[in-house]
Amino acid sequence: MKRWVSISLIVLVLGGVIAYNKFFKSKPGEPGGVGGRGGAAGPAAGGRGPGGPTAVNAFVVVFQNLKDEVVASGSLVAAEQVDIYPEVSGRIVQLNIREGQPVSKGTLLLKLYDGDLQAQLQKLQVVEENNRRIEERNKRLLERGGISQQEYDIIVTNLKGALADIEITRAAIRRTEIRAPFSGTIGLRNVSMGAVVTPNTLIARLQQTSSMKLDFSIPEKYGLAVNVGSKVDFQVGGSDKTFQGAVYAIEPGVEEATRNLRIRARVNNSTSALRPGAFAKVNLVIRNDRALVVPTQSVIPQTRGSQVVVIKNGKAAFQDVKIGIRNASIVQITAGLQQGDTVATTGLIFLRPDAPVKVAKIDKLSGKSQPVKAASDTTNVTMR
């Protein structure tokens, strides 16, 4: 009995081995063997083949024009602006304000009643004429010795007093008139003919808008890069046009609350396309020069700096670099590379020092100069 059991076991084992070799084990060189039919036929893109170099894309380091810009919020201000108030109280007897129209310097805008002052002026002029005749007669008497010098000095003093009273009255009459202090455009008036006004009554606003001022602020770290004459570009709401201005004044001190530096630029508004008080998005070029640049993806951040992989003689070399300004696509290299160096832009996770590298493709940058905008440095200007 035991003999037949042993024979049966041997037959089952041999049958299993034959079935395995026939149905499950593939022939050498055929797909679908141990390890699965879907196994990779070669190295993955950016990876290393069996015993071969790692295939990567690369970039040749070049000089390119690079702009460093600060984006800030600003407001437009009229070159000259004044709110018109009367100096004295009175009733309006003449109103020459044409709303929204240009006026010339010295134009009479408003006249208050001055009948009492005119009468007083006439009275003082009569007194002045009488004192002048008295002075002339007494001057002849003094020359003949008919009066003393002291008596003549009193008469002269009375004449000068009358002349001073006349000037005071004329000054009071001038205060009843409001004239344009400069050429500009008059705004909307707030009074009507015959109204009684006081020094607290706003008559209208006069603005000079043929040229305008642009007020904005930038972080203090950019202060040394801005000088009188620096150019600024800006846009206003409702228009896609880019306007230009030139810096002509810089606040001497930094605002302690915001650590920003206030700057004022002059803007030509001969076409009257700009209005005072409008919001402006300002682009100030801090620096515009030629610099060594590499694609952003080629820079490897490190704990205390940055690295790039330089391809030399077909091998990878990890090089420490110092970076400058950057944007989404390019980074400025200030130290560590030279023009003509080749750096890897893909497959960086597969590379090791002195590992063999094969360049599959050379990447290129756009030929246009790309501005680098410090979005985190966007600042605001208080609207005035």
Results as ranks from 00 to 15, higher is better:
Val71Met: 07
Tyr113Lys: 05
Arg3Ala: 03
Ser376Glu: 09
Gly115Tyr: 05
Asp377Thr: 00
Lys27Glu: 14
Ala204Ser: 12
Gly52Asp: 02
Ile362Gly: 14
Val197Lys: 08
Ala344Trp: 13
Gln64Lys: 10
Lys373Phe: 09
Ser26Gln: 11
Thr176Lys: 02
Pro356Met: 05
Pro353Thr: 09
Pro353Trp: 08
Leu108His: 14
Ile10Arg: 02
Leu12Asp: 10
Ala375Ser: 08
Pro181Trp: 01
Asp233Met: 07
Gln297Asn: 08
Ile97Pro: 04
Asn130Phe: 15
Pro31Asp: 00
Ser26Asn: 03
Arg266Val: 12
Ile173Leu: 09
Gln64Ala: 15
Val321Leu: 09
Ser26Phe: 14
Pro53Ala: 09
Ile166Arg: 09
Arg189Tyr: 00
Ser369Ala: 02
Val197Ala: 12
Glu136Trp: 09
Gly347Phe: 14
Arg264Tyr: 09
Ser73Ile: 11
Asp320Cys: 06
Pro53Lys: 10
Arg170Val: 01
Arg264Trp: 04
Ser298Lys: 01
Phe216Arg: 03
Ser369Pro: 13
Asn313Cys: 13
Gly38Met: 13
Trp4Lys: 04
Ala375Gln: 10
Gly52Phe: 03
Ala45Glu: 09
Ala246Asp: 08
Asn227Met: 01
Pro295Ile: 15
Gln319Trp: 12
Ile330Lys: 12
Ile7Lys: 08
Arg326Val: 10
Arg275Val: 00
Asp68Tyr: 14
Val103Ile: 13
Asn131Arg: 06
Leu117Cys: 00
Met1Leu: 13
Glu99Ala: 15
Thr157Ile: 09
Ala58Asn: 07
Gly340His: 09
Gln244Phe: 07
Lys312Ile: 10
Ile147Tyr: 06
Gly49Ala: 08
Val61Lys: 07
Val62Met: 04
Asn327Phe: 04
Gly49Asn: 07
Gly38Pro: 03
Asn130Cys: 09
Phe279Asp: 13
Glu255Ala: 10
Ile7Val: 12
Lys123Ala: 13
Lys358Trp: 14
Arg384Glu: 15
Gly324Glu: 06
Val236Ser: 07
Thr382Leu: 11
Gln207Phe: 14
Asn380Phe: 05
Glu256Asp: 09
Gly305Val: 11
Gly47Leu: 15
Val191Ile: 02
Glu251His: 02
Leu110Lys: 05
Ala316Gly: 02
Val13Pro: 03
Gly347Ile: 12
Gly314Phe: 06
Leu348Gly: 03
Asp289Glu: 13
Thr334Val: 04
Asp233Pro: 08
Asp289Phe: 12
Ala79Phe: 15
Gln338Pro: 11
Phe24Val: 03
Gly223Lys: 00
Lys312Ala: 10
Ala225Glu: 15
Thr201Cys: 02
Tyr222Ile: 06
Gly194Phe: 05
Arg48Trp: 05
Glu99His: 11
